[in-house]
Simulated scan of single mutants.
Amino acid sequence: MIAISVIIPTYLRPKDLTRCLEALKQQTRPADEVLVVVRDSDNETWALFKESNFDPLPIKTVTVEVPGVVAALNAALDVATGDIITVTDDDAAPHTDWLKRIETYYLSDERLGGVGGRDWVYWENKLLDHDDTETVGQVQWFGRVIGNHHRGVGQAREVDILKGVNMSYRRSAIAEIGFDERMWGTGAQVNFEMALCLALKRKGWKLVYDPAIAVDHYPAKRFDEDKRDRLNEVALVNAVHNETLVLLENLPPVRRVVFMLWAVLVGTQESLGLIQWLRFFPKEGKLAQRKWLASLRGRWQGLRTWQQSVKVNTSN
């Protein structure tokens, strides 16, 4: 028997959090502790806990003053007592067998450092129709990152990256690593999961994605620069910075060079390189121009942060 801690960072979304906690109450394998991380200024969530009773969940609240998911997760990790640390979002509802399936994996394989699964995405309470794929959570040899955690089908498989809304880790594997505080952003801090996952892979731990480990995901309003549904240059710079930093830190030397060349010359639909800008400019005009320039700034800033980190590590 192993102990399982569930961490839920939350901010100004009491209705979503209530749905999440109600789903955790229905688990066939109950959580040993549920750590809800609440910002000190989040009066709506504090009011929820004064007015509502979520028994029999073993809930503990953790207060943070620093914005961002990384600070929230590290604060919870500092006080968590479980052998397994599971993480989900406040706008998600884990399926009833979520913790049971996760526990089974860790009991069966001591080399397993992390396990996660699929998030079934709902928009306005309607399940979105996505094309299914077996290619999930991969970093290709030249540095392109493939997510697709919300589209995964098939058997369980090893992956490079898990997704924050549905992930878990062996506490002994992540205790010394923690969540990377160099991530930019004041809320979602996009790509923070990749930093932890690739660090674990470098240390020889195995990560598994199983679509049967599932949560329902109801993407809710964000209260930072990343608004999901429209471009914000600051959010794009932050996301690209984080991705660039993480990949430069974890790719071998030759692949680092290939990655930076590919990123600047080609890129993706989200993080534009030169070719992607030329592709989208006839249709999007100034919007494509803004995306391209923000992407370049993110690449440059990510490179600088990585270089600074190398200097610090070398001097130590």
Rank of each mutant, 00 (worst) to 15 (best):
residue 181 E to H: 07
residue 4 I to H: 04
residue 24 L to F: 09
residue 235 A to G: 05
residue 74 N to Q: 06
residue 200 L to W: 01
residue 243 E to G: 07
residue 105 Y to I: 06
residue 208 V to S: 00
residue 150 H to V: 01
residue 238 N to R: 02
residue 287 L to N: 11
residue 266 V to L: 12
residue 243 E to I: 04
residue 147 G to P: 04
residue 114 G to V: 00
residue 68 G to H: 02
residue 40 D to C: 05
residue 49 F to C: 11
residue 283 K to N: 09
residue 204 G to W: 12
residue 127 L to Q: 11
residue 46 W to C: 10
residue 206 K to T: 15
residue 90 D to H: 10
residue 291 K to E: 08
residue 271 S to P: 00
residue 177 I to Q: 06
residue 122 Y to M: 11
residue 39 R to V: 03
residue 152 G to P: 02
residue 249 E to P: 00
residue 269 Q to V: 03
residue 256 R to Q: 15
residue 182 R to V: 01
residue 263 A to D: 03
residue 186 T to D: 14
residue 265 L to R: 08
residue 2 I to Y: 13
residue 39 R to Q: 15
residue 46 W to Q: 10
residue 190 V to L: 11
residue 312 V to N: 09
residue 146 I to Y: 07
residue 6 V to W: 01
residue 52 S to C: 13
residue 260 M to Y: 08
residue 138 Q to W: 06
residue 11 Y to M: 08
residue 171 R to K: 15
residue 103 E to L: 14
residue 142 F to T: 09
residue 271 S to V: 00
residue 9 P to V: 10
residue 155 Q to D: 15
residue 258 V to K: 08
residue 97 D to W: 02
residue 310 V to P: 04
residue 143 G to V: 09
residue 136 V to I: 14
residue 273 G to K: 03
residue 192 F to R: 01
residue 136 V to F: 07
residue 259 F to H: 14
residue 128 L to E: 12
residue 82 G to R: 05
residue 75 A to I: 05
residue 9 P to K: 09
residue 224 D to I: 06
residue 260 M to D: 06
residue 210 D to S: 07
residue 271 S to G: 12
residue 75 A to Q: 01
residue 8 I to Y: 00
residue 153 V to F: 10
residue 73 L to S: 00
residue 61 T to A: 05
residue 188 A to W: 03
residue 16 D to Y: 09
residue 291 K to N: 10
residue 206 K to D: 05
residue 10 T to G: 09
residue 95 H to G: 03
residue 145 V to N: 04
residue 310 V to R: 15
residue 300 W to C: 04
residue 197 C to V: 06
residue 27 Q to Y: 08
residue 213 I to R: 09
residue 114 G to H: 01
residue 12 L to Q: 15
residue 164 G to D: 08
residue 312 V to K: 15
residue 243 E to K: 15
residue 188 A to S: 12
residue 234 V to P: 00
residue 91 D to K: 10
residue 208 V to Y: 02
residue 236 L to H: 05
residue 149 H to D: 06
residue 127 L to V: 04
residue 253 P to S: 08
residue 234 V to D: 13
residue 157 R to Q: 15
residue 256 R to C: 12
residue 135 T to D: 13
residue 10 T to Y: 08
residue 128 L to A: 11
residue 292 W to T: 02
residue 81 T to I: 02
residue 204 G to D: 12
residue 40 D to W: 01
residue 24 L to A: 02
residue 135 T to C: 04
residue 13 R to I: 02
residue 254 V to A: 13
residue 277 W to F: 15
residue 34 V to M: 08
residue 176 E to V: 04
residue 96 T to Y: 14
residue 85 I to L: 05
residue 90 D to N: 13
residue 237 V to R: 14
residue 222 R to P: 00
residue 136 V to S: 06
residue 11 Y to S: 10
residue 166 N to G: 11
residue 281 F to E: 09
residue 241 H to F: 04
residue 25 K to Y: 02
residue 188 A to M: 04
residue 65 E to K: 15
residue 110 E to M: 12
residue 107 L to G: 11
residue 172 S to L: 06
residue 133 T to Q: 06
residue 269 Q to D: 14
residue 56 P to W: 05
residue 146 I to E: 09
residue 202 R to Q: 15
